[in-house]
Design a binder for these strands. Structure first.
Length: 1059
RNA sequence: GGGCCCGUAGCAUAGCCGGUGGUGCACCCGGCUGAUAACCGGGAGGUCGUGCGUUCGAAUCGCACCGGGCCCA
C-alpha cells in the first residue's frame, strides 16, 4: 500500500482506471470469470444512431451498468451486447438534408442504392461516436460487437418473425386510415406524430336534407379539405336534436342542431331569431339523407347517398353533428366499416387532390381549405379560426393528414388477451408500471401498421404475384436464395427489390415495395441479439431475457413492440422482468430542449466532476422510476461525498506506510477478513462498531438491490461514508494512528480501517467503478484478484453485527452533539476541558449506553466526568414566575407587590416549600401552586442542550487545573500549526520555546505535567516554557511567531531538532 | 378528454399499510487545524399543491380541483 498525497482528482483516476481495464482486458476477464455462473440474459434497448448521447441516455446506460455489475459480482454469467437502432426515417431525413433533397422524387433520381449507402455511413459513423461516449461512462456492455439492426443476420430475425405472423394468420393487408406525412410520402406510426398548436379554419356548414325544402343538417369541421370526401353525418343516440326555424334578415331556414347547442350556433351564424319546431331524440335522425354542398364541384359527390348514422364518440360540442369522411379519419373509418360506408379518399401520397376531387384536383390539401370554403357559398353558416393541437411528422415537422391507404398490419387486436396475460407474468419495477400503465396501454392498443413507403429500413419480405394475386412471406435469406435462385449479398433496398420468385401459376412474384416500421426492427432484438434464427443454441439456452430496463416513454415503444412481436412469434413475452425508469428533466422539472436552452450534457458533468460523480448522482438523486430533475447542487454534494471518501481512504495510509503495515492475508495470499473475525472480541468499541456498521450496510444494500432501489443503495453508501466513517470513526481512531510504539490498539485500528475500506470499495464497485478500482488497486494483496470487479458481492457477516453496540453508539453520538451545543452556548471550545457533563434521563437505553461507553463519552465531551442522573439533577435551580391571572383577582391592588415578591424570591426554595406543604408564605402573603409556575434556571456556568430522550448539562466553570490543560492545548495547537509551516514530516523531532506574557498562565502551563504533555504531542526533544522577561531566546529558531491566546500574548519558536 | 406517476422549507429529497415532519445543499453563526484548495458543529427556515371528507387524530386514507411529467385520444 502506498501513501496517497494527491487530493481527489476524478479525471486522473478515471483515465488511469479505464486504461488499466483496457490494457489488462479486465472486462473480458470478468466475463470469463463468471462463465460458469447462472446465466442472466440482458437485452440492451438500442438507442437510435442520430448522434450524441444526452443525459437521459447516459442515465439509462448507467442504470444498466450498475445493475449488471452487481449481478456479475453475485456470480451471474451476464449475457449482454450493446445494441443500436440504425434504420428509419430520422436518418433518411438527415441525409436528405445533407443532400439538399425535398421529396422522394429527388431520392429516386439520385438512386436508391447511393442513397441508402449514405444512410448506412451515417448510421455506422454515429454508432462509433456513441459507443465511445458510453465507454467513457464506464459502461461495461459489449461495444466491440454490438447488435446492429442493419446487419443481414438481424434483418433475418425480423423476416422470420413476420413469417411466423403470417403462419398464425396475424399478418394482414388492409385499407386503413393512417397518419400520413405528405412530405415524406409515407405512413407514419402514432408514435412518430408530434403535437403542437396550429391555427386552422373552424367552419359550420349546412348539409341540405333530401326531400325537404330549405332544411339543413349543421355540421362543424376544422378541415374543410376533407369535405370533398364526406359520405355521412354522425349523431349521438344519447342526445336530443332540435329542428329550428331560424330567421336572418328576411330569410328563414330550417336547421338541425343538438338541442343544447342551438343558441351558440345560431349566434355564430348571426341569426336574429329562431323558434324550435320540434325536438327529436338522436334515433329520429338516423337514416335521414342529405346531399353534399360540394356536389357541383366534386362529381363523385353527386353519386354518393349521404345519410345520418349513429356514433358514440360524438360529443355535445359545436353542433352535435359530426361530418364523416372515412378516407380521412380513424374514427370516421371505423364508423364507415360498421355502417358499410364508402371509403372515398381523393388525395394522393403527396397530399394533393386527385382528379376524383373534381374542381379541386392537384391542389395541396391544406392550401385548398380556402378554396373549399369559397365553394360552399351559401352553405357556409359561419366561419371562425381555431388554435388547437395538431399532429406533425416527427422528422420533417410537416402537418400530417389522415389518409386511407393499403398497408400491412400485425393484428395486435387478435392477440390482445395473450399480451395482457403475459404482462401479468412479468415482474415489473415498480409494480404499477406493468399492472396499471402498460396494462392500460395494451388494453387500448390497435392493430399495428408495420409498413412504410420508404427506403432505409428492413424490406418487408413479402413477394406478390400480380398474375394470380398470391403472396408469399420469406423467413430467411437462404430461403429467398433457394426460391429465387439469386444470391443475396445485401438484403436492403434496392438490391432485394430486383429479386423475383417464380409463382406456381407460372407468373412472377415481385417484392411489395414497402419497408418495415422502424419500431419493428428493435421489436425483435431479444432474439436477434442471440443470432436467432441463424443460430439456435444461444436462443434455446438464454431466451427470454431475464431483465430489461428503459424509460417510461418506452411503454408504448420498446416494451410494447417487443411484447407484440414476441407474442406473435413465440406466444410469450420476451422478458421476465422490466425496470421502468423516468425521464431526465431540468431543475424546474421541464423537459430539456435545445430551444429552451436548458440542456445539460453528460460531458459537461463529466468534465467538471468526473464520471463517478455523474453516475452516483443520477442513481442517488431520486428513485429510478421518478423523473430526474437535474440539479447542479446535487452533483456538487455527490462530489463532496466522494471527496470525503477519498480523504477517509488516504487518511491512515501515511501511518500504515510508516509502520510498513501489511494486512493479514488468508489462503493464497488473498485477503479474507479473517483477522477481524478472529480478533473482534478484543478490539476497541469503535472498531467493533464500524465493522458492525459496514456489515449492516451490506445487509441493507442486499435487501434494496432485490427491488432495484438504486437510490437507497447510493444514499446508504453516502450516509455511511459521511456519518459513520468520516464524522465518527475517523475522529475516534485518530489518536491510535499516531501511536509511536507498536501496540495491539494500533494494529486493530489498521486492520479495522483496512477491513472497512475493502468492504466499502466492493459495495461501491457497481456504482462508482473507477474510484472503487483505484482504491482497490492500492489496497489489494498479492493473492487478490486483479480488479475490484472480480470480487464477489459481500454478504453481511451476521456474526460481526452488534445491534446493541450500534444502538449504544447512537446514544453517544447524540450526546456528543448535545455537548457541542451546550459548549457553544457556554462559549467553551472543545479544546478546553470541562468539569462535568450531566445527562438527565428516564431512558434505560441512554443510561446503559453512557455507562457502557463511558470512556468514549468522556473523551468526546472532553470532560473530567460524565454522569447520568435519573429524576432531577440537584444542581438545577428554579425561577418562580407569577401567574397574574390568579394573583390579580385574589390579591386585588396588592397584586403588583405579590408579583414582585414572587419574582425576586428564591424559586428553588419556594418550589420545595410548595411541593412539601402545598403553600408558602412570603412577607405574609400566602402563595399556593396556582399562583406560580417554575421555570428551570441553571446555575452559573452550566449550559444545557437536549438530546434524544435526555437533557445534557455541561458545567464550563474553569478551575486552575482545567485552565492549565486548556492553555496547554492551545500551545500544542499553535506549535502543530508552526510545524506545518515548516513543512516537517510527522515523525520529525523539534526543539521549542514558549514565552508567555502572563505570569500566572506561564506557571500553569509550565507545570511539569503539561510541559511533558506538550513535548510529547508536538514531538519536542527539548521544550522550555517560561514567563517572558523581555530577553530574546539565546538561539534563534527556524520559525518564531507571536500569538494571542485568549488575550494572553505568547511568543513561540521552533526548529527541527539537530539543526 | 382519458390512463399512470409526481407535487413536502430557497433548491433537492425521506417519511406515505394514520399517532407531535427527518436529511442534504444553499444561508447565518461557530469550531477544528497530524484528511487541510479539506473537515466538524450549531442556528434559522415548513399552510407537507388547494379544498372537502373519513377519523379521537391525516403529509400519510377517500373525493374534487390546481400544477408538472410520460403516454394515449
Amino acid at each position: 500500500m502506498k501513501e496517497v498525497t494527491s487530493s481527489y482528482n476524478p479525471r486522473d483516476i478515471e483515465t488511469r482506471v479505464q486504461d488499466y481495464w483496457k490494457n489488462e482486458n479486465i472486462y473480458a476477464r470478468v466475463q470469463a470469470l463468471r462463465n460458469d455462473g447462472k446465466a442472466f440474459f440482458f437485452v440492451d434497448g438500442p438507442p437510435y444512431t442520430t448522434g450524441h448521447i444526452h443525459l437521459g441516455t447516459a442515465w439509462n446506460k448507467i442504470i444498466k451498468d450498475a445493475i449488471l455489475r452487481y449481478h456479475r459480482m453475485r456470480g451471474a454469467n451476464v449475457i449482454e451486447r450493446a445494441g443500436y437502432d440504425m434504420h428509419g426515417l430520422p436518418i433518411e431525413v438527415k441525409v436528405e438534408h445533407q443532400l439538399g433533397f425535398t421529396s422522394k422524387k429527388d431520392i429516386e433520381e439520385y438512386g436508391i442504392a447511393a442513397f441508402i449507402e449514405q444512410c448506412r455511413t451515417f448510421a455506422v459513423t454515429h454508432m462509433g461516436i456513441m459507443s465511445d461516449q458510453f465507454r467513457k461512462l464506464g459502461v461495461w456492455l459489449d461495444f466491440d460487437n454490438p447488435y446492429q439492426t442493419i446487419d443481414a443476420g438481424y434483418i433475418e430475425s425480423a423476416w422470420w418473425a413476420i413469417q411466423r405472423a403470417d403462419e398464425r394468420g396475424l399478418l394482414e393487408r388492409g385499407h386503413r386510415v393512417v397518419n400520413w406525412c405528405p412530405r415524406c410520402e409515407t405512413a407514419i406510426a402514432d408514435s412518430e406524430v408530434e403535437y403542437w398548436d396550429e391555427t386552422d379554419p373552424s367552419i359550420f356548414v349546412k348539409f341540405p336534407v333530401v326531400g325537404r325544402e330549405n332544411e339543413y343538417l349543421v355540421i362543424w369541421t376544422t378541415t374543410p379539405w376533407t369535405l370533398p370526401a364526406n359520405v355521412a353525418v354522425a349523431i349521438n343516440l344519447a342526445f336530443t336534436y332540435a329542428r329550428v326555424r331560424a330567421k336572418k334578415d328576411n330569410d328563414e331556414e330550417i336547421l338541425w342542431i343538438a338541442d343544447e347547442l342551438v343558441e351558440p350556433v345560431l349566434k355564430m351564424g348571426r341569426y336574429q331569431d329562431y323558434t324550435v319546431i320540434e325536438k327529436v331524440p338522436g334515433s329520429g335522425l338516423v337514416g335521414m339523407e342529405y346531399t353534399s354542398p360540394l356536389a357541383g364541384h366534386v362529381p363523385h359527390q353527386a353519386e354518393i347517398r349521404h345519410r345520418v348514422v349513429a356514433a358514440d364518440y360524438v360529443t355535445l360540442e359545436n353542433t352535435g353533428l359530426v361530418h364523416i369522411a372515412p378516407g380521412h379519419g380513424w374514427d370516421d373509418y371505423l364508423v364507415g366499416i360498421k355502417e358499410d360506408l364508402e371509403v372515398f379518399c381523393p388525395v394522393d401520397a403527396g397530399g394533393c387532390f386527385t382528379p376524383a376531387a373534381g374542381a379541386f384536383a392537384d391542389m395541396y390539401v391544406r392550401d385548398a381549405n380556402d378554396v373549399v370554403v369559397d365553394a360552399l357559398g351559401g352553405y357556409l353558416l359561419a366561419r371562425r379560426t381555431i388554435t388547437h393541437r395538431y399532429g406533425h411528422c416527427w422528422r420533417c415537422k410537416t402537418p400530417i393528414i389522415y389518409r386511407a391507404t393499403a398497408q400491412w398490419f400485425l393484428k395486435a387486436t387478435s392477440i390482445r388477451g395473450e399480451m395482457l396475460d403475459e404482462i401479468a407474468k412479468v415482474k415489473w419495477y415498480p409494480g404499477w408500471a406493468g399492472s396499471a400503465r402498460f396494462h392500460d396501454f395494451v388494453k387500448e392498443s390497435r392493430d399495428w401498421c408495420i409498413s412504410r413507403q420508404r427506403y432505409w429500413g428492413i424490406p418487408i419480405p413479402i413477394w406478390h404475384c400480380e398474375e394470380c394475386g398470391e403472396y408469399t412471406v420469406i423467413g430467411t435469406i437462404a430461403e429467398l436464395e433457394e426460391r429465387s435462385g439469386a444470391t443475396i449479398p445485401d438484403p436492403h433496398r434496392p438490391y432485394v427489390d430486383e429479386v423475383t420468385i417464380p409463382c406456381s401459376c407460372g407468373g412472377e412474384m415481385r417484392r411489395v415495395a414497402d419497408i418495415f416500421d422502424v419500431w419493428f426492427d428493435s421489436a425483435v432484438a431479444s432474439w436477434a441479439t442471440l443470432g436467432f434464427p441463424r443460430q439456435r443454441e444461444a436462443f434455446d439456452r438464454y431466451w427470454p431475457a431475464d431483465f430489461i430496463t428503459e424509460g417510461q416513454d418506452q411503454t408504448r415503444g420498446w416494451f410494447y413492440s417487443q411484447l407484440g412481436a414476441s407474442t406473435v412469434a413465440f406466444g410469450r413475452a420476451p422478458y421476465k422482468s422490466v425496470l421502468m425508469h423516468g425521464f431526465a428533466l431540468d431543475a424546474e422539472g421541464r423537459k430539456m430542449s435545445k430551444s429552451i436552452g436548458n440542456v445539460v450534457t453528460p460531458e459537461e458533468v463529466m468534465n467538471q466532476f468526473g464520471v463517478d460523480v455523474l453516475r452516483f448522482y443520477v442513481l442517488w438523486a431520486n428513485a429510478p422510476w421518478d423523473d430526474l430533475k437535474f440539479n447542479w447542487d446535487g452533483v456538487k454534494t455527490v462530489h463532496r461525498t466522494l471527496n470525503i471518501l477519498w480523504n477517509v481512504y488516504r487518511f491512515p495510509l501515511p501511518y500504515m506506510a510508516l509502520d510498513a503495515f501489511e494486512p493479514a492475508a488468508g489462503d493464497g495470499g488473498r485477503w479474507d477478513g479473517s483477522f477481524v473475525r478472529a480478533h473482534i472480541g478484543e478490539m476497541p468499541e469503535e472498531d467493533r462498531w464500524i465493522v458492525s456498521r459496514v456489515n449492516s450496510l451490506a445487509r441493507a444494500m442486499n435487501d434494496d438491490m432485490q427491488e432495484y432501489h438504486l437510490h437507497r443503495e447510493t444514499r446508504a453508501l453516502a450516509a455511511f461514508i459521511l456519518e459513520d466513517l468520516s464524522r465518527w470513526y475517523v475522529q475516534l481512531v485518530r489518536p491510535r494512528m499516531w501511536l509511536e510504539e507498536d501496540s495491539p490498539g494500533k494494529r486493530y485500528a489498521y486492520e479495522t480501517s483496512y477491513y472497512v475500506m475493502r468492504r466499502l470499495t466492493t459495495l461501491l464497485a457497481p456504482f462508482t467503478p473507477h474510484i472503487a478500482e483505484e482504491i482497490y488497486q492500492n489496497l489489494r494483496l498479492e493473492g487478490d484478484p486483479e480488479s475490484v470487479h472480480m470480487l464477489d458481492w459481500p454478504e453481511a457477516e451476521d456474526s460481526l453485527i452488534d445491534a446493541h453496540l450500534e444502538a449504544d453508539m447512537g446514544v453517544v453520538q447524540s450526546f456528543d452533539d448535545a455537548v457541542a451545543t451546550a459548549r457553544q452556548a457556554g462559549k467553551r471550545k472543545l479544546r478546553w476541558p470541562v468539569g462535568e457533563a450531566v445527562v438527565v434521563t428516564e431512558s434505560v437505553e441512554v443510561k446503559t449506553a453512557l455507562q457502557d461507553l463511558n470512556a468514549l463519552a468522556l473523551a468526546r465531551a472532553n470532560a473530567r466526568a460524565v454522569r447520568v442522573v435519573t429524576g432531577t439533577w440537584d444542581r438545577i435551580l428554579w425561577q418562580a414566575e407569577p401567574v397574574m391571572r390568579a394573583i390579580g383577582p385574589e390579591f386585588g391592588k396588592e397584586g403588583p407587590k405579590v408579583k414582585a415578591l414572587i419574582e425576586s424570591a428564591d424559586g428553588t426554595a419556594l418550589k420545595a416549600a410548595i411541593e412539601r406543604d402545598g403553600k408558602a408564605t412570603i412577607d405574609g402573603y400566602e402563595i399556593t401552586a396556582r399562583h406560580v409556575t417554575f421555570a428551570e434556571a441553571l446555575p452559573t456556568g452550566v449550559f444545557s442542550a437536549p438530546m434524544k430522550d435526555a437533557t445534557v448539562y455541561v458545567d464550563v466553570t474553569l478551575t486552575p487545573a482545567l485552565e492549565a490543560e486548556g492553555y496547554a492545548r492551545e500551545v500544542i495547537r499553535r506549535i502543530q500549526d508552526m510545524r506545518r509551516q515548516l513543512d516537517l514530516n510527522v515523525n520529525d523531532f523539534i526543539v521549542a520555546a514558549v514565552e508567555i506574557a502572563d505570569g500566572r498562565v506561564a506557571s500553569l502551563v509550565g507545570e511539569e505535567e503539561w510541559q511533558n504533555e506538550i513535548a510529547g504531542e508536538v514531538r519536542a526533544a527539548a521544550l522550555t516554557v517560561r514567563h517572558a522577561d523581555g530577553k530574546r531566546p539565546a538561539e534563534p529558531f527556524a520559525l518564531e511567531k507571536d500569538w494571542d491566546v485568549e488575550g494572553v500574548q505568547m511568543q513561540i519558536g521552533i526548529s527541527r531538532a539537530g539543526e
